[in-house]
Design a protein around this nucleic acid. Structure first.
Length: 423
RNA sequence: GGAGAGGUGGCCGAGUGGUUGAAGGCGGCGGUCUCGAAAAUCGCUAUUCUGGAUUUCCCAGGAUCGUGGGUUCGAAUCCCACCCUCUCCGCCA
């Protein structure tokens, strides 16, 4: 959520920046509501003043055993009048809030303008495309042939866009999770968290998933609870409505969780194999930072995620997302994109985002820079470190051999009982 | 799921209809004392909104005691609903 005052004072800027994200908003209603709110508020406050003052007088008169009937009668009227105005004011406030909740975050000044992914800018590239003496197979074929991925039985158990990991496949997934968690906790200074996989509406509003993107979520029937689409939601809300000490910042968390996404409306796009599942595993990085350090933290978080790819020896590149490709809550995002040999293309594996104070304002997460100073909003950052399914698919495709086997990356072998090859 | 208790400021905790934004304590900040520190002692110590001004904390005012309603001239205090926490019982990995 943007600061209401900021929006008020920068209407044109907000409209322009929102447009640069590919969203159109009309702030005429907002402008009118603000004016109406001010007028109503002043009336209500004047009435309340009178009410408070006279009520105290009545109290004193009663203690002195004086007769206060005329005052009470007068205040009865004022009280009724106040109530009517308060109701109007409440409606106005609710409308304002709902407009604000639907305005996306404003891109950072370093973000390139543009509406389509072609306007994303490559920041750096690491490694090289693996070379094959044969034409590389897609990961779903490799996985099926090795008997480690079973899409057919998953769709019997649940439906499409689910998968069963089997044997060495399950081991590979588990090894990757442990590998990532170990590096982030032992070497990069993150605290490991296992959060709830179910969250409430308030938490999802805090991160910006609600109210706008309810369709992307799985909601539990009859409850206001949802399956998490990412660990970002429980992690960010860990400190909701709290005031942190400045010395405690930055705070860095890492969590492995499954993620659940309805993927409504994504039919036909990247649907094969492990790329777009309703349920997938992810190791998520999350940082609470002071405002002045958040862009340093963004670089750290991004390079921590990259380090996993380097150790796995996977060819990737880093792009900075253009304004139009940025998510709703993000001010700046680096995408890590993995090389997928069969597709002959890069595929997003991690989005490292600085949300600045957008989520913190929604979730009311603040810190005090000095003991006496006023609390201000923290900056929140998150990024995958990394998404598991896509990592597995890149490993299968990049390390595949002519005979259909897959070599296990060196760094991963200790996590797989020394296994060097899946065959 | 059943029965009970409770939710108050950064934290603990008093407060059951009338100057209570809220006693007391802890923590923090500042002063006195001290060569210095501790102890003692005194003072300050919530957030947010509106209007004004000599425009960043100066003045006036509003809101906030889990959340939302209600009663009342007046609610932290009474009533209703919901949420959450704790204890006991039941069930269960």
């Amino acid at each position: 959520m943007l600061d209401i005052k900021f929006v008020q004072e920068n209407l044109d800027l907000v409209i322009r920046k929102t447009a640069s994200k590919g969203m159109e908003i009309n702030l005429t209603a907002f402008k009118n509501l603000i004016a109406e709110k001010k007028a109503q508020l002043q009336k209500v406050e004047a009435l309340r003043f009178e009410l408070n003052k006279t009520s105290k007088l009545i109290g004193r008169m009663k203690m002195d055993k004086e007769d206060a009937l005329s005052e009470i009668a007068a205040m009865k009227k004022v009280s009724e009048e106040t109530r009517i105005l308060e109701e109007k004011l409440k409606t106005v406030d609710e409308e304002l809030k709902s407009i604000l909740l639907n305005i996306p975050n404003i891109p950072h000044e370093s973000v390139p303008e543009g509406l389509s992914p072609e306007n994303n800018e490559e920041v750096r590239m690491w490694g090289e495309k693996p070379k094959f003496s044969f034409s590389p197979k897609p990961h779903w074929e490799i996985g099926k042939n090795l008997g480690i991925l079973d899409f057919e039985r998953a769709s019997k158990i649940t439906g499409s866009r689910f998968v069963v990991y089997l044997g060495k496949g399950a081991l590979l997934e588990r090894a990757l999770i442990n590998f990532m968690l170990d590096i982030h906790t032992r070497e990069k200074g993150y605290i490991e968290v296992i959060p709830p996989f179910i969250v409430n509406e308030i938490s999802l509003t805090g991160t910006g998933n609600l109210p706008k993107f309810e369709d992307d979520l799985f909601k539990l029937q009859g409850l206001s609870w949802y399956l998490i689409p990412t660990a970002e939601v429980p992690l960010t809300n860990y400190y909701r409505d709290e005031i942190l000490e400045k010395e405690s910042l930055p705070q860095r968390f890492v969590a492995y969780t499954p993620c659940f996404r309805s993927e409504a409306g994504s039919y036909g796009k990247d649907v094969r194999g492990l790329v777009r599942q309703h349920q997938f595993n992810k190791v998520e990085l999350m940082t609470f930072s002071s405002p002045e350090n958040s862009y340093v933290e963004l670089e750290k978080l991004t390079s921590d995620a990259e380090d996993i790819l380097k150790r796995l020896g996977l060819h990737y590149r880093v792009v900075v997302l253009c304004s139009g490709d940025l998510g709703f809550s993000g001010a700046k995002t680096y995408d890590l994109e993995l090389w997928m040999p069969h597709r002959d293309k890069f595929l997003e594996i991690s989005s490292c985002t600085n949300c600045e104070d957008f989520q913190a304002r929604r979730a009311n997460i603040r810190f005090r820079s000095e003991t006496k100073s006023k609390p201000q909003f923290v900056h929140t950052l998150n990024g995958s470190g990394l998404a598991l399914g896509r990592t597995v698919s890149a490993i299968l495709e990049s390390y595949q051999q002519k005979d259909g086997s897959v070599v296990v990356p060196k760094a991963l072998q200790p996590y797989m009982n020394g296994l060097e090859k899946i065959e």
